[in-house]
Design a protein around this nucleic acid. Structure first.
Length: 573
RNA sequence: GACUUGGUAGCUCAGCUGGUAGAGCAACUGACUCUUAAUCAGUGGGUCGAGGGUUCGAACCCCUCCCAGGUCACCA
């Protein structure tokens, strides 16, 4: 809480006080029954004017054009903006014109919530407007919103564009830039259409632990935390895969979860430390089956958002209708580099990396080296949905060995627009094989790979009881939403992307002041008066400081006790 | 983490070679009964991201730091 109020904030607080003095509660408790919305009025009034002879709307005042005893304003609700017309003598039929002259013209501001009762009509210039018969204050805004001006042709003036402020104050962003709400509406459609599709297949939505004693199911650095009562370390999950498989062991045929995952790694336009993943496991299926399911699912999602399976992303038209192109990992490298790495050992792969100028380090095993080559040379070429299949066993400890190809596993990743958005296996259900594979991960960890997977004995115990053949799939929801909404940064599809803490508006040590007897609540006032250090204060004139404190208290409408003069004098001793 | 661009009024931004901090919108006072980026007249509003340095003098030059964007690196 800052006491250093701007001029406009002080004026709004004064307006708030004056509203109360007029007997108007600026924050009424009663429900306000809204009967009409801006978009509906704008879309349907002209075709059906009789329906709009008595409407009640509510929203924020976003613009005002006052012309003496008549005014226009725009009210923004959750659906858009509609113009209202206010005539003084209509809302103030008697002698008392306070509601118009004082409340509307002086005490209300841009950003305030009001309720409007009236009828819809067409102005002389043809704009659909609500003729106001009653004006009700619903909530007073104390901070001025940025004023973004829009012309009829869509030209924007003084846009609120600073990404730092947009992300830190998303509530302001979406208020003054309501077009961004569509991204989040579409995000919701992506998730709900996918959920509906899964439910229609008879699969069950579940929840699994976010706090996990062992971080398994993926290769990533975790966030560590601690439970006090149990006095034990816990990790925020980097994946939920191993828990969902336990549920397949438990006897469910299909389980899925939309959930937040947490990875303690770098941040950029495709990575946020917490992100949303969807994982689904279906018993008695394999990764071939899963490819067809993903095609059907993503086509459903694209249609839910756009009505058609074709999505415009950057320069590309991406078609989510299946079937998608399939390319094995080795074939894709062959296709885009001309090099056949399928039979190479680690040494050969290192040489290929050196020839292609790909940076590697000593901790990388064979699988990791192949992945490096793929990332550097293939990935960005995969624009239309493409399955990359049959990964080397070394980089995939949780997938079943390939049914015919030695050294490979039954895995695919789906690439769209050069980015991975889904990953699926025929899940490894051989408990002995699984134990060996996790032990190999421990060896990688020993070589310095700090992302190698950890051993999870309880998961292995579950497998030993027996897991049916199962196919599993993970989809990065944020990246899918980026695709479906044509956004190039993850921040734009997250309401509250992770940010560094805002710097405190320079807090000259409060303790320094309290140590000489200044009450803590008065320190910011002294700062506002220009005394940022005790030394500066002591150089001042005690009598003037005392008088000015009273002045500031009045000016800033502070509800704190004025210190007596002797107290103030003591600060200077 | 590296490089790079930026941080000036509530918002969007100017600010030349170092010489008294500016505009538009918003706010305030006033005029105006169909405006719509309303208009007209007037007024107030600043820790120039923070701290140090150079200088007679710093928004501007130098150093350190903070925050954000971009590019790259890292990263299923």
């Amino acid at each position: 809480m800052s006491i250093a109020l701007s001029e406009q904030e002080i004026i709004r607080r004064e307006s708030l006080q004056k509203l109360r003095e007029l007997g108007i509660n600026p924050y009424p408790a009663e429900a306000f029954d809204v009967t009409a919305w801006a978009q509906d009025i704008n879309d349907n009034f002209e075709a059906n004017p009789d329906k709009y002879k008595q409407v009640v709307i509510a929203g924020r005042i976003m613009t005002r054009r006052i012309m003496g005893s008549a005014s226009f304003a725009e009210i923004q609700d959750s659906t858009g903006r509609v113009q209202i017309y206010i005539k003084r003598d209509d809302i103030c039929p008697g002698e008392d014109k306070t509601l118009y002259n004082t409340v509307f013209k002086k005490l209300l501001d841009i950003g305030d919530y009001v309720g409007i009762k009236g009828y819809v009509f067409l102005t002389q210039t043809g704009e659909i407007s609500v003729h106001t018969e009653e004006l009700i204050v619903l909530s007073k805004s104390l901070k001025p919103l940025p004023v973004v001006k829009r012309e009829d042709d869509g030209t924007i003036h003084d846009g609120f564009t600073d990404p730092e402020m947009r992300y830190r104050q998303r509530y302001v962003d979406l208020t003054v830039n309501p077009e961004y709400k569509n991204i989040f509406i579409n995000r919701s459609k992506v998730i709900s259409s996918m959920r509906n599709y899964f439910n229609a297949q008879g699969w069950m939505e579940v929840e699994t632990p976010i706090l996990q004693p062992v971080h398994g199911g993926a290769a990533a650095r975790p966030f560590a935390t601690h439970h006090n009562t149990l006095d034990m370390g816990l990790f925020l999950r980097i994946a939920n895969e191993l828990y969902l498989k336990r549920l397949i062991v438990a006897g469910f045929d299909g389980v899925y979860e939309f959930g937040k995952m947490f990875r303690n790694e770098g941040m950029d336009r495709t990575h946020n430390p917490e992100f949303t993943a969807m994982e689904i496991y279906v018993a008695y299926k394999d990764y071939i089956w899963m490819m067809a399911m993903v095609e059907e699912c993503l086509e459903t999602v694209a249609k839910a958002v756009h009505g058609i399976p074709v999505v415009h992303v950057g320069q590309h038209e991406i078609n989510f209708a299946g079937p998608y192109e399939k390319l094995s990992m080795y074939d894709s490298i062959l296709k885009y580099t001309g090099i056949d790495v399928s039979a190479m050992d680690e040494e050969g792969l290192r040489k290929v990396c050196a020839d292609l100028a790909i940076e590697v380090d000593a901790s990388m095993g064979k699988g990791k080296l192949i992945d490096e080559i793929f990332s550097a040379k293939v990935e960005h070429n995969l624009i239309q949905p493409t399955y990359i299949t049959d990964y080397p066993i070394e980089m995939t400890p949780l997938a079943k060995k390939h049914r015919t190809k030695d050294g490979l596993v039954e895995r695919f990743e789906l690439f769209v627009n050069g980015k991975e958005i889904a990953n699926a296996y025929s899940e490894l259900n051989d408990p002995i094989d699984q134990r060996e594979r996790l032990e190999e991960q421990l060896i990688l960890a020993g070589r310095g790979d700090d992302e190698a997977m950890a051993m999870d004995d309880d998961f292995l115990r579950a497998l030993e009881y027996g897991m049916p053949p199962t196919s599993g799939l993970g989809i990065g929801i944020d990246r899918l939403v980026m695709l479906m909404t044509n956004q190039s940064t993850i921040q734009e599809v997250l309401f509250f992307p992770q940010m560094r803490p805002e710097k405190k508006a320079k807090a000259p040590s409060i303790e320094d002041f309290t140590n000489i007897g200044v009450p803590a609540e008065w320190v910011p006032v002294l700062n506002k008066m220009g005394f940022n250090t005790v030394e500066e204060l002591k150089a001042g004139n005690p009598n003037k400081v005392f008088n000015d404190l009273g002045g500031m208290r009045k000016k800033l409408k502070l509800d704190i006790t004025m210190p007596v003069k002797e107290t103030v004098m003591a600060w200077f001793e």
